[in-house]
Simulated scan of single mutants.
Amino acid sequence: MLVAVVSVKGSPGVTTFSVALAARWPAPSRTLLVEADPSGGDIGIRFWLEATPGLVSLAAAARHSEDPTLPWQHTQALPGGLPVVTAPPDADRARAALSALTSEPRGVLRAAANALDATVIVDCGRLDPGSVAAPIVRAADAMILLTRAHADDLAHLARRLPVLGRWTQHPAMMLVGEGYSPTEITRELGVSPLGRIPDDPRGAAVLCGRPGACSSRSGPARSRLGQAAHKVANLLLAAHAPSEAPVPQQGPAEQHPVPILRAVPGVPPAPVARGGLRLAPPLPHPQDAPGTGRMP
């Protein structure tokens, strides 16, 4: 299973939550954490890891091999044993490595996630339309979107939902910090948050590698942040478990009323689909698009 963790408008905690999710992913799955933030990595610095192996060495090796075990060969271990592929802190080097890694036709991370009992958690950082991490999100089985719950953040998110709807069929939202309630956000955006990341400074400090932060009550298994990540992991596994029950057939979308969103300042009054994502505007016909000729 391949899970991408992203943010919009620089919502904090993507790396910390990615570490928590990977550390608390249920057994017996082998879990790998990959840092794929185009703005540069933090994990290596936080935990005093070596500069290599990591994302740069993995990208170089992927040019010559499609071995699904390749990402595991470029990991370092976090305290507790979690294997991680770290990104360089320099943004230019991180983007160059990601560009090389995502240019492979099959995708080495996708191949690793296809292996039996393997889960790959990828920290993709802030998700912009031109992000070099976008191919990873498109290939993922699930995407976890972290967002603040204030009006300005929701307004930015509302404008991104049509794009995200084209990138992934399995989005999940987690709220960060105070603001609008999950009920209000469900009503306004048509997307039901999985929950809210708890304010857990001690648990976050452990997951950030801060000296002296570890204790029996703040470790990933006992902290509020770790417990929330474990619940999210179980929800994702349940959502992607094979089901023998037949899927009910839905009628055409236009037969069902869709809400018009007006209450959150800055959120445009556009309809949302029954699946929870805002409907994207129709693409222009090639003959109607300016500067284009007839289709061959």
Rank of each mutant, 00 (worst) to 15 (best):
N234G: 06
A60E: 14
L164T: 00
R106Y: 04
M1I: 11
A270W: 11
P220Y: 10
D67P: 00
P290D: 13
R106W: 02
A142R: 10
D37F: 06
A139H: 08
P12L: 10
G276E: 02
H74F: 10
A172R: 14
A87I: 01
R30D: 11
G130T: 08
G195P: 07
Q73E: 11
A172E: 02
E188Q: 15
A60C: 05
A245L: 12
G81W: 01
W48I: 04
R262M: 04
E35I: 00
R274Y: 06
P265W: 08
G209T: 11
L261K: 12
E244S: 09
D42C: 07
A213M: 10
R217A: 12
G276L: 09
V14F: 03
V247A: 13
P286L: 13
G10P: 01
D288E: 14
R294N: 05
P296S: 14
A113T: 01
H170T: 15
P281W: 10
G80M: 02
K9D: 14
M174G: 01
A94H: 07
Y180D: 08
A23I: 06
M173Q: 07
P193T: 04
A289C: 00
V191D: 03
E50I: 02
A61P: 00
G276V: 09
T15M: 02
M295R: 15
P265M: 12
P268D: 09
E104Q: 15
L283T: 03
A205C: 05
S181A: 12
P129W: 03
T183R: 15
L32N: 03
R278T: 08
A36D: 03
L154P: 10
S181T: 15
G81D: 04
A263V: 05
R217C: 01
L237W: 03
E50L: 14
L279M: 15
P248T: 14
V34A: 06
R46Q: 15
T15H: 05
A51W: 09
V137H: 05
S39E: 13
I136T: 06
S181G: 11
A100T: 15
T15R: 01
D153M: 04
G13I: 06
L225R: 00
A87E: 08
P171V: 09
A204T: 01
V247Q: 13
A51G: 13
A221E: 15
Q227E: 05
P68K: 07
A253Q: 09
A149E: 09
L98P: 05
L78Y: 01
P162T: 13
C208G: 12
H150P: 02
C214F: 14
P28D: 10
V163F: 07
P281K: 11
V19G: 00
L58E: 02
A204P: 00
A280Y: 06
L146R: 00
R138H: 08
V206E: 02
D128C: 09
P135K: 08
